[in-house]
Design a protein around this nucleic acid. Structure first.
Lengths: 336, 336
DNA sequence: ATGAAAGCGCTAACAA
DNA sequence: TTGTTAGCGCTTTCAT
């Protein structure tokens, strides 16, 4: 069946050229502004484009111009409020810069490396969040000239990097707890599994160290159920901690549940803190003391930094660290 | 500069063919399985592919095969936990089906229609969430043969549709409140602005109607600040409502704040309910009575339904409605 | 300023 | 079973 002439997908640059009575090269020039075109000709071309409802084929453009007009972003996982905010900032800025956004979540995927490599073939640049692929893959990608920005992950190869500075907030949190008289501090999280957590753990330890306190660390996954389980074990143990410093808000919210179950008053009998300031942190009772990260800005900045590389406006690596804020609420209320 | 032979982006099907000592068509056949190839030849080709690190150019494939191997998804907005979950389910299923995912957020965009039309040129199918573009755009898109699935939006044109059935849950909610003795019910939300809200409003009214109760409705935006503001006005008014039925959880959480500010006990002096069951609903105190939607399933189903159309496995429209669950918690606790 | 024509990397007839 | 070749729709020299 022949496509209807009104089907925009069937209108090619040849149709426009014929209609305007010019060559296809002129249509291309008039549309992209890549070379001078007389005003009269341009007007004819634009008229034809409008009449025919012409929109350039993306594949054709991409093949000829060797560009994709698209950015990728790779998440370890898409659940939770954290990543949605990053994506929001990223998409907003990327599309303002004229680039489409392809998303990929590696979580639960059989072969993340291959997926990322495939994605790399259809974008002009890539943003990688956290621990999504091994370093050598990133080095490979950048070595072949693909612009890559890593977010919330240590610098690697020639890739740009953007992170939230958790160290100072973690130190402040440690000092705050020590200043309020908490002494037996337990950190819930797995520093060896994530550089982010490692940084938080280090900062908290340093902050407490100034007051001569040595916290303990207990491995914990990044979810509520794990938080409840680990906290319950800790609170039932021999040396009951008087403060639980959790690697993120989900763990902390789970810990609150555990504390309530054994009849402890959060903020009075035991302090509990989180990290991220998700919506639930504000609405929990007692409200959760936590650390706010500029997630949307993180995403937006990633899009900007990537664009500079893609357009060639910058060739030297850029490494940014954004400030975070300690948000003190009731869950770490004064010690009895 | 000549690209290094090790740069995978520079390896074409010609290089592979030369290396394997076969024609490019044979390489294509061996890789796609589109036609029989002898085992010996296939082995040679695969060896060459591995040695050269060949990966087909997406643009080339796309242009020649007239396919994109990509799906689009258009959100009104990406903030809030709701959309992240839908996207998660969508991405997971789409990529399992071998399709990349392009995201577009129309919120705060100057020209959503044009953005969606552009997106439509680089995907094989599109999922549209809620009120992102006018009906006529969808009709146009489907008329030209582009598979479209609308989610959380009334059926339109030839597009498939997927929704969560809010009506029965809303009725149940209305009956539940009436059964617990609440009489002066205020609905917070704007039915005329969203079909979803209209459905919830209708269901609540029907549920209450069975008990001879006529609720009021007050327009309200979908965010916490608006919820607080509108609820504060309502609670300070002459005929103070004894139950606030909110169009979503954000509004409800904002309303809880307003109630606390004027010294009302939520769940005792005033019932408050939400919609969506976001994480914060569970952790709020009192915990929020709300309605849970299968958001992840919504996204996954959208990907599946879309794929059926794209692959041509189905040509007749499909309209799905997923069940929702009323989740009763303490915020609507028994009336005094 | 403009047109003709040569690719971009791939798929799919068409031959052999 | 395989190779040859003609496009797919566009950008970009190269002439004019």
């Amino acid at each position: 069946m022949k496509a209807l002439p009104t089907d925009p997908a069937a209108v090619t640059i040849y149709d426009v050229a014929a209609r305007a009575g010019v060559g296809i090269a002129t249509v291309s020039r008039a549309l992209r502004g890549s070379a001078p075109v007389s005003d009269a000709t341009r007007a004819k071309v634009l008229a034809a484009v409008a009449e025919l409802g012409f929109r350039p084929s993306h594949a054709g453009t991409s093949l000829a111009a060797r560009t994709h007009a698209a950015n990728g972003i790779v998440f370890p996982d898409l659940s939770g409020p954290y990543y949605a905010e990053v994506l929001l900032g990223y998409e907003e800025t990327a599309s303002r810069l004229g680039r489409s956004v392809l998303v990929l979540a590696t979580h639960g995927r059989d072969d993340p490396e291959s997926s990322v490599r495939d994605l790399a073939r259809r974008v002009d640049g890539l943003v990688l969040l956290g621990r999504t692929v091994p370093d050598h893959v990133i080095e490979e990608l950048t070595a072949f000239g693909l612009p890559v920005v890593v977010v919330a992950r240590p610098e690697v190869g020639a890739a740009d990097s953007i992170r939230a500075d958790g160290l100072s907030a973690a130190r402040a949190l440690g000092e705050h707890l020590a200043g309020h008289g908490f002494r037996r501090i337990a950190f819930l999280g797995s520093p060896e599994e994530s550089p982010d957590v490692a940084e938080r753990w280090r900062g908290v330890r340093e902050g407490l160290g100034k007051h001569g306190i040595e916290p303990t660390v207990t491995p914990c996954l990044f979810d509520e159920a794990s938080g409840t389980r680990v906290a319950a074990a800790l609170l039932a143990g021999p040396e009951r901690p008087d403060a639980l410093v959790c690697a993120n808000d989900e763990i902390a919210l789970g810990a609150i549940v555990a504390a309530e179950e054994v009849g402890l008053r959060v903020g009075v009998d035991v302090a509990i803190t989180g990290w991220d300031d998700v919506m639930a942190a504000r609405h929990a009772r007692p409200a959760l003391t936590t650390v706010r990260q500029p997630m949307r800005t993180l995403g937006a900045l990633a899009a900007e930094v990537l664009d500079q590389r893609i357009t060639g406006h910058r060739t030297t690596p850029r490494h940014e660290s954004l400030a975070t804020d300690l948000v003190v609420r009731d869950s770490c209320g004064t010690h009895p």
